[in-house]
Design a protein around this nucleic acid. Structure first.
Lengths: 217, 217, 217, 217
DNA sequence: GATGAATGAGATTTCATTCAT
DNA sequence: AATGAATGAAATCTCATTCAT
């Protein structure tokens, strides 16, 4: 599983491509776009460099392909985690965050590609991630709006304000993900709970001893 | 201020070093560590490459020096913004965030070096930034603890929980900083207000129509 | 006729080879020997690369085969154009030139392979073209000799002199061919006439023993 | 003189550039643009590859620089050879050709770059040579026109016809140059004489209004 | 008769870094 | 205090060629 593996010969293209992208995600995630070398990717994938170029065209294309694959996987994980759209908004948010933290814990390299590396290298790459991020922001935004309506209040939060809140929430989640993944003994569940407390109840309520409580598993 | 400047000859070392680091921050901030070239730095600083090496030893050392300088400047800006430690905790937090958003808006390259580039390139660099971040986290942590005490409650929030909250807050702030700096018409003040609402009052309160209100200027 | 064609399956070898060589002549003619890639040839021929290798062994062999085929086609076109060997020498020369210009106009890629590319890549290839050129030179030489005899003069033009003249004639023809093929509105006929004007009287004088004499050094 | 020479250290830039271009002309002239490798050029020049890139930017730029230098040298040699513009036209032509053959004999690699290699690699390069060639063609064209006037004839040779003749003459010269340079014992003087013999009488007849007339189709 | 899978070797180019003055 | 001259090492990418079916 670590790679540099035995050269398995004559695989069908699809499978080889997957191998290469696995290797690429790992290398890009750890070394960054410029720091990664195609030699390293090829070696980790257990193939020769020309084959990488034959299938994935160029370093840029390979990077883009990685970003797309990882972005899709992450959003699908989050959407899948949320489950029923009929649940109350806070429950939906909780489930989404839980899924998010679970996924990033299990795919640290993929997450690093998206969160750290893709943003560092010019419009084209950043745009790919921005699109994914926007999707999550929209999801969060809707939850906030739903809740506001449920509270029989006009959605008088101005749109821009809501966008800012969503940005803050997503940013907090991203930061917590990094923290949780590098701190011994922080589970996805704990990270999600912390964030819910932070965001949903607010520090003021927390301090006053009125935390938001996660649902039982 | 832009550089590529006329070659001013025979400057005292301290000043030359400052010129070089200004150039370096700009180049590192925009191109990243690997993407930056010493040629570019030297040219932008208006000196020859050997001089850069004479004064700053190596690319790594130069990068480290940039990180340190920018980290110090940022923390000083935040501490200076907070002002009187006798103010109420929420007011202190507000002032700190306001200063933070002001500073990052005015020094996008320095901020990029800290936020984006330093984390991308291995322990030694990331550690520098982590130290700065820790300082901010401690600051926030103390505010939370102070507030808890002021509410005559035991600081029974476990330490780890507080650390998580601080991480979330700092992450949200970073995310909002990026958003504010790239979205037309979002001021540092607005970003700070959004974050206070998000963090202090909580989404629940916001939705219920009980926002936190920023102090008049 | 243009290629990149639909993959027609299971063709007899001779025809496949022709397809490949058509493609190769085009690619070699336009990109040169080094600039041409076997991939391009295979794609243009509508077959896979291994098949090209199976039939034509190597890039060098393929190039040589192209040169031979095109050289043969060109000399045949010229000989065919001349027609009756009983015609007067100037008429024969005229017809030959006319055929030459017609052929190069119609087969620019083949002509480029011979005239430009083959000479650029080392003895083995150049020799192939030299052989063809020699054949044309012999043909011209004979015409000159015939004419000399017809003028009742000994063919006392030294052989080397005649070879030089033939070189000049062929070079002039080649140059005119390039010019005619790239200049709007110059027909093969006009090019041939220009060359006859240029060459014939000079040759006539020579044959008649009235050379132009260089000044003393 | 052969190169690969001892590494002479710390030369002024101008001199190093000359060395590099000498090497490049030799390599390009013999192997062609694609066939030449920058490694080879650097080695022959006795420097490291990066220095070649530092001074001459890229393979393309280096090639262009070679073409320009050689083209200028050749035209200057021919113009210098012609000397007095008051000489009779045939004498001027003779002197020009003589100088041309002398120069190409002494600089076979430079001549190969111009005559063979530059034309093989796309517009930008070919255009450089075309410009030089055009200059020579103009020179020849003028001589022909002068002669026509001297013969008290209207310059009723249509312009296009003259251009064709000049093309033929230059092409013949180029061809003869290649021949003379590769055939043992052909001097520049002999080559020039051959071409004058070949060309001048023909031109004379034309100018005198006695063209060779093509047979009806 | 024909091809998808695969690679060794080498191309151009860039970069961090040092030497000699 | 400062620089012009120079390079070792490594990066991305391409190409002619073969293997197994």
């Amino acid at each position: 599983m670590v790679g540099g593996a035995v050269r398995t010969r004559r695989l069908p293209r699809a499978e080889r491509e997957r191998q290469m992208m696995d290797a690429a995600v790992r290398v890009f995630g750890r070394q960054g776009y410029r720091g990664a070398s195609m030699d390293e990717v090829a070696e980790l994938a257990g193939v020769s460099k020309p084959l990488v170029y034959l299938y994935l065209k160029s370093k840029e294309d390979l990077f883009t392909a990685c970003i797309r694959r990882e972005a899709r996987a992450l959003t699908e994980a989050v959407r899948g985690g949320v489950g029923d759209a009929a649940l109350p908004a806070d429950r939906q948010l909780w489930e989404g965050l839980h899924a998010f933290f679970r996924y990033t814990a299990e795919n640290p390299d993929g997450w690093a590609v998206l969160h750290v590396q893709a943003r560092t290298h010019g419009e084209p790459f950043a745009a790919e991630v921005a699109a994914m991020r926007a999707e999550l922001v929209v999801f969060v935004t809707q939850l906030i709006a739903v809740e506001a309506r449920a509270a029989h209040r006009d959605p008088d939060l101005p749109e821009r304000e809501v966008a800012g809140l969503a940005q803050a929430l997503v940013g907090a989640a991203e930061s917590l993900a990094a923290w949780a993944n590098t701190t011994e003994g922080i589970s996805a569940r704990q990270a999600a709970a912390t964030l819910m407390n932070f965001a949903w109840a607010g520090l003021g309520n927390l301090i006053a001893g009125r935390p938001w409580t996660p649902p039982p598993t």
